[in-house]
Simulated assay, not measured.
Amino acid sequence: MTRDHGGNLDAARALYGGADWIDLSTGINRRPYPLPALPPEVWTALPTRPALDALSRAAAGAYGVQPAQVLPLAGAQAAIQLYPRLRAPGLARVLTPTYNEHAGALQAQGWTVEPVATLDALEGADLAVVVNPNNPDGQHHAPTVLAALSRRVGLLVVDESFADPHPALSTSAHLSDRLLILRSFGKFYGLAGVRLGFALGGPALLTRLRDLAGPWAVGGPALEIGAQALGDTRWQAQTTARLMQDAARLDALADGAGWALVGGTALFRTYATPDAARAQAALARAAIWSRIFPYSRTWVRLGLPDGADWPRVETALRGLT
């Protein structure tokens, strides 16, 4: 299967040249959390238990769970690589279209993977995957509906990597040993290079996942940065409000260019265009990189511009009309 991704700015530069690119090919917040000053020992010593506990408490508060229901990992991607090993391979169903690493990681561990188009079609699988809200179309499902689904599959994995600005969508109030939630730190906080994420689940489930991850799964700098950012409720509220406004601003520009909103989140928007490859090339000539998909000739996904990005993005989109 094709495991293509956004963030491939090297490919854009190889095709179009230039250096001053605006990378909107990911859903990463382009106004990151301000990095705190870090004590020197986080770089020189192995991660400590108190630092790990502090991060788990901060994540528990941010996600509305108990610290014992939190497992910090080196990004949501690390969890995606690990969870296929929680059970013996069998039949996995993935609600699609969605982030392609889920199917890829499952297949790599010997699972038979069936893409399905509806929640009901997930029922009966040994393992089922739902991205909520979904990447790239923003489709979302009520937490109570997903909780009920978890009782009709062997294990339900709910990827909430884009849920930070949409807390009402989280299924975290329904955790069990048949429901595993994945959370990303880097997207909402704009610090993808920190490589931090979380698995939320019942104690038995997390014990098995912790054993698979091994010791020191998260580095000292990530422990410190994550604990401070996850506890900063003021920054979270201000950022969510700004992202909502910026999403509406981008939708208006896209509408003016004749694009139709497919869906999205407060971190990215996906539009239907007459020709996705042509639209991507037109934006690339203005050194703006977007995301298109091998399964759709019309969909273009854009992350949200920030600050000085906006004038160039506005000019490029208006030039498409």
Rank of each mutant, 00 (worst) to 15 (best):
V129Q: 08
V131F: 12
D126K: 13
V116D: 03
R152C: 07
N134S: 15
V157Y: 07
A128K: 08
L127W: 07
L127Q: 08
P136A: 13
V116E: 02
V145T: 14
N132C: 01
H140S: 15
H141I: 03
L155A: 07
P133R: 04
P136M: 11
P136Y: 15
V145H: 13
H140C: 15
T118C: 08
G124C: 12
G154E: 11
P143H: 03
V131H: 13
G138F: 06
V131R: 08
R152D: 03
P133C: 09
A142Y: 00
L156Y: 04
P143G: 04
N132G: 01
A142H: 07
P136N: 10
L119V: 08
V131G: 14
R151D: 15
V130Y: 09
N135I: 15
A125C: 12
G154A: 09
A121W: 02
V131N: 14
G154I: 07
A142Q: 10
T118Y: 06
A142S: 06
V116S: 05
V129S: 11
A125P: 12
P143V: 01
A142I: 01
H141Y: 15
L149D: 01
P143M: 02
E123D: 15
N135A: 15
A147Q: 00
L122S: 09
A128M: 06
A148N: 00
A148D: 13
L127P: 07
S150Y: 02
A147I: 03
V129F: 13
T144W: 06
G124H: 12
H141D: 01
R151W: 09
L149Y: 02
A121Q: 13
D137G: 10
V130K: 04
V157F: 08
V129Y: 09
V129M: 10
L127V: 07
V157R: 10
V157N: 10
L149V: 03
H141V: 10
A147C: 02
N134Y: 05
N132T: 00
L156K: 04
T144A: 14
P115A: 14
P143Y: 02
L127D: 08
P136S: 12
P143E: 02
N132V: 00
R151I: 05
L146D: 00
A121L: 06
D137L: 13
V129C: 12
A128Y: 05
Q139H: 14
D126T: 14
G138T: 08
H140M: 10
V116G: 02
P136E: 09
A148G: 06
L119M: 07
A142W: 01
T118Q: 12
H141R: 04
A125S: 11
A121F: 07
A148C: 05
S150Q: 04
S150N: 00
V129N: 10
P136W: 09
Q139I: 10
